[in-house]
């Protein structure tokens, strides 16, 4: 798009070469752009990716908006995602969600005003045997109970964004 982001442009050119058909690079490119833009995809991110892949921003949007892990709105530095699918649900995931809501003073789906935390419930994270699964910036915490939440939140608050040692 413009001179400033040519770093991203170059990175994407590398990704392009990985695939027999360059269109395959659109997902990795968007993933890269999302990191560059602090965890979400502002309109400029789409313009940059589109320019780097010779696509249109609209096309990139149609791809990104299909997948849950692409964000079209800003998220907190620390994204806490609680699985509430069957197995975690049976193991009391809802109690865990409520515990986070209490500790973070957020409703599920919200981002804290200070931009520190986003709390969400998500579909099966693939850890059902070790319920409840909580993903902190995509790092999975296993067997989380409501009782663990206060300590976990305290840890996240001090360790800062990721909290993953």
């Amino acid at each position: 798009m413009n001179v400033r982001t040519s770093a991203l442009y170059e990175e994407i050119q590398k990704i392009r070469k990985r695939y027999p058909d360059e269109l395959s690079a659109v997902m990795p490119a968007l993933q890269l752009a999302q990191v560059e833009h602090g965890g979400w995809l502002p309109p400029d991110a789409f313009r940059e990716v589109a320019d780097a892949l010779d696509l249109t921003p609209a096309y990139c949007l149609s791809i990104a908006s299909f997948y849950d892990m692409f964000r079209l709105a800003p998220v907190g530095e620390t994204v806490v995602e609680v699985c509430t699918n069957i197995s975690c649900g049976l193991a009391g995931a809802q109690r865990v969600v409520e515990a986070f809501e209490r500790e973070l003073l957020l409703h599920a789906g919200e981002t804290s005003p200070d931009g520190r935390f986003t709390l969400r419930t998500v579909e099966c994270l693939g850890g059902c045997g070790w319920a409840t699964i909580v993903a902190v910036n995509n790092r999975h915490r296993l067997r989380v109970t409501a009782a663990d939440v206060p300590a976990l939140v305290a840890e996240l608050r001090e360790k800062g964004s990721d909290g993953n040692a």
Binding site: D68, T84, G89, L90, G92, A93, Q94, V97, A108, G109, R120, T121, V122, E123
Partner: peptide
């Protein structure tokens, strides 16, 4: 056990 369990929006 699934009372009010909150599915993702």
């Amino acid at each position: 056990s699934l009372e009010a369990v909150l599915a993702p929006v």
